Computed example of a mutant assay.
Amino acid sequence: MIYLDNSATTRPYPEALTAYTEVASKIWGNPSSLHSLGSQAARILEASRRQIAELLGKSAQEIFFTSGGTEGDNWVIKGVAFEKAPFGRHIIVSSIEHPAVKESALWLKGQGFEVDFAPVDQSGFVDVDRLAALIRPDTTLVSIMAVNNEIGSIQPIQAISELLADKPAISFHVDAVQAAAKIPRADYLTERVDFATFSSHKFHGLRGVGFVYIKAGKKITPLLTGGGQESDKRSTTENLAGIAATAKALRLSMENQAASASRTAKMKAVILEELAAYPDVTVFSGRENFAPHILTFGIRGVRGEVVVHAFEDYEIYISTTSACSSKAGKPAGTLIAMGIEKSLAQTAVRVSLDADNDMGQMEQFLTTFKIIYEKTRKVR
């Protein structure tokens, strides 16, 4: 079995699973309880928070735990919009955002907010000049993902940070779900970023856990009200075991980041070189300013889901771009935003690599691809 769908979810580190099991089985007290078992749990909770904060170069008071990326994106987009509504009701998101951001923005539109979608160029990068032209006096939020989940384009977060440097009234949110432990922290978490979203299972933690970075002093409407957990911002009993596993996974992933990026980039380069020899293959992911682990391509005339299932017959697992929308059978929204014709966008499939993969697997992938390519000759 060859697993090449790491942007959908990664295999948990054994150390993260051990941390989860240890905490779940031995530290079952509620962190909010006053007795010693509660205090023990609270110490684990805060130790995990401090470790994550230190890894990101932030303070512990700026880290808030969630159930994952979708919750975090929904919270920031809606929470900031409503918190700042008295000062303006205009927000900007890019045209290639994850559905968690894009659908949240569209929902706000139905609540009376105004939304503009910043366009991207033909390669899938936000056009900073055109973004600047969308900013208005009543703009309260700009949300741009760090690494596009469908093609891997690394967005110009530094340039956008410079654009917003003299506009402190505008909150800047970065969806860092596909960026954490994949690209340098400075490329997605600048000093100008006010909010950032993370998801544990994208860096070898567990599903159902995530966190949001909220810069000190920045206001946001609470996600959940009730018991006052997470500094009154998200009231619910914390998933302590999952949080401990998240801290462990993030530390290991960031320690291995440079080696992992180098390893995946080499494997990606091998695939790119081989695919270039096929006349009916379109490659949507480039080399420069693209994440080292994501490669998206298509066979002309062959729908992406057909290719995915063809590889699955050989126990090789890839995806049709975003895992969250793949079952809907829709073409990649990023490709449409790039101006790619719908029928070509529908051919897209995504290979997403990890340090667990190796060159032997790439050779097997390419051998299988050649077989699938020949079998689709009549369709093409």
Score class of each variant (00 low, 15 high):
residue 144 I to F: 03
residue 60 A to L: 05
residue 277 A to E: 12
residue 282 T to A: 13
residue 18 T to F: 09
residue 362 M to F: 08
residue 139 T to C: 02
residue 297 F to L: 04
residue 182 K to V: 10
residue 219 K to L: 11
residue 245 A to T: 02
residue 375 K to V: 09
residue 345 A to K: 13
residue 379 V to H: 13
residue 215 K to Q: 08
residue 314 Y to M: 11
residue 181 A to F: 02
residue 124 G to A: 02
residue 158 Q to R: 15
residue 356 D to H: 13
residue 63 I to W: 00
residue 324 C to Y: 12
residue 28 W to N: 13
residue 292 P to Y: 02
residue 317 Y to M: 10
residue 51 Q to M: 12
residue 203 F to C: 01
residue 245 A to R: 00
residue 251 R to M: 08
residue 170 I to F: 06
residue 295 L to M: 03
residue 362 M to P: 12
residue 252 L to Y: 05
residue 219 K to W: 03
residue 270 V to L: 14
residue 134 L to T: 10
residue 332 A to H: 03
residue 264 T to P: 00
residue 144 I to T: 11
residue 349 V to D: 00
residue 64 F to G: 01
residue 257 Q to L: 11
residue 234 R to E: 00
residue 91 I to T: 05
residue 227 G to C: 08
residue 102 K to I: 06
residue 270 V to H: 15
residue 145 M to G: 12
residue 166 D to C: 05
residue 59 S to R: 14
residue 1 M to H: 12
residue 276 A to H: 14
residue 215 K to W: 02
residue 210 G to F: 04
residue 176 A to D: 03
residue 311 F to W: 03
residue 19 A to D: 07
residue 208 G to M: 06
residue 220 I to T: 06
residue 192 R to W: 07
residue 268 K to F: 00
residue 147 V to K: 08
residue 37 L to E: 15
residue 46 E to S: 09
residue 69 G to Q: 07
residue 40 Q to H: 12
residue 183 I to E: 00
residue 363 E to R: 15
residue 21 T to L: 11
residue 131 L to A: 05
residue 195 F to S: 01
residue 377 R to T: 09
residue 187 D to C: 11
residue 162 E to S: 14
residue 219 K to A: 11
residue 95 S to K: 11
residue 360 G to T: 13
residue 194 D to A: 01
residue 376 T to W: 09
residue 277 A to H: 14
residue 102 K to M: 05
residue 268 K to Q: 01
residue 333 G to T: 08
residue 288 E to F: 05
residue 153 S to W: 06
residue 217 G to C: 00
residue 79 G to S: 07
residue 213 Y to W: 02
residue 229 Q to I: 06
residue 110 G to L: 06
residue 230 E to S: 07
residue 76 V to S: 01
residue 366 L to E: 04
residue 57 G to Y: 02
residue 56 L to R: 04
residue 14 P to W: 04
residue 195 F to K: 04
residue 305 E to S: 12
residue 181 A to S: 10
residue 122 Q to S: 13
residue 297 F to C: 05
residue 49 R to Q: 08
residue 34 L to M: 13
residue 67 S to Q: 12
residue 252 L to P: 06
residue 28 W to M: 14
residue 125 F to N: 02
residue 361 Q to C: 02
residue 315 E to M: 14
residue 40 Q to F: 10
residue 23 V to R: 05
residue 19 A to G: 02
residue 307 V to A: 01
residue 105 A to T: 05
residue 364 Q to N: 13
residue 274 E to D: 15
residue 287 R to G: 04
residue 249 A to F: 06
residue 321 T to W: 00
residue 22 E to I: 09
residue 249 A to P: 07
residue 180 A to H: 12
residue 222 P to N: 08
residue 27 I to N: 03
residue 276 A to Y: 11
residue 262 S to P: 05
residue 169 A to G: 07
residue 105 A to R: 03
residue 105 A to M: 06
residue 354 D to K: 03
residue 47 A to G: 10
residue 311 F to K: 08
residue 235 S to W: 06
residue 113 F to T: 12
residue 293 H to C: 03
